[in-house]
């Protein structure tokens, strides 16, 4: 049996995933990173993006969550993802996300680059959702 690592995806409202996985790929604050079993202890911030993992259940099922920032704590045999929101494809309303993406892109364009952190985050969040839902970007 391949080595595995325990993954918890935790939001304030619920534990979105809990189980053994083979690999976790996360949008880390200093660049994307992957965690395999026996990773060195690490605590990192997360950007808005897509969290991926391959479940260690023989079928190698892949799971994906759109996360809007947060934190990830890695120890050799456990990985805890802490985020305000973690949405799987089933949680995402594609039309709403597309509308959000359009609106966010518009308001970002209107800002002309001045103090647009919020807008950039909105665009990234919509894009992450669409990526998880495998819907075309607008």
């Amino acid at each position: 049996m391949a080595a595995s690592i325990d993954l918890d995806v935790v939001t304030p409202g619920a534990v979105k995933f809990q189980g053994k996985v083979e690999i976790v790929v996360a949008p880390g604050g200093a660049g994307d990173l992957a965690a395999l079993p026996n990773h060195a202890p690490m605590l990192t911030t997360l950007r808005i993006g897509v969290l991926r993992a391959t479940v260690a259940d023989g079928e190698k099922r892949r799971i994906e969550f759109a996360v809007n920032g947060g934190f990830m704590q890695i120890t050799p045999n456990k990985c805890v993802v802490l985020t305000d929101m973690a949405l799987s494809a089933a949680d995402i309303n594609i039309e709403a996300a597309q509308a959000d993406a359009r609106r966010a892109a518009e308001s970002l364009a209107q800002k002309h680059g001045a103090d647009d952190v919020r807008e950039r985050e909105a665009v990234a969040w919509a894009a992450a959702q669409l990526e998880v839902a495998r819907a075309p970007h607008v």
Partner: peptide, 14 residues
Amino acid sequence: SYEFEPDTKSVLAA
């Protein structure tokens, strides 16, 4: 021996 990314300060600030 935890590693912090980007660094302790920004993780704490977040």
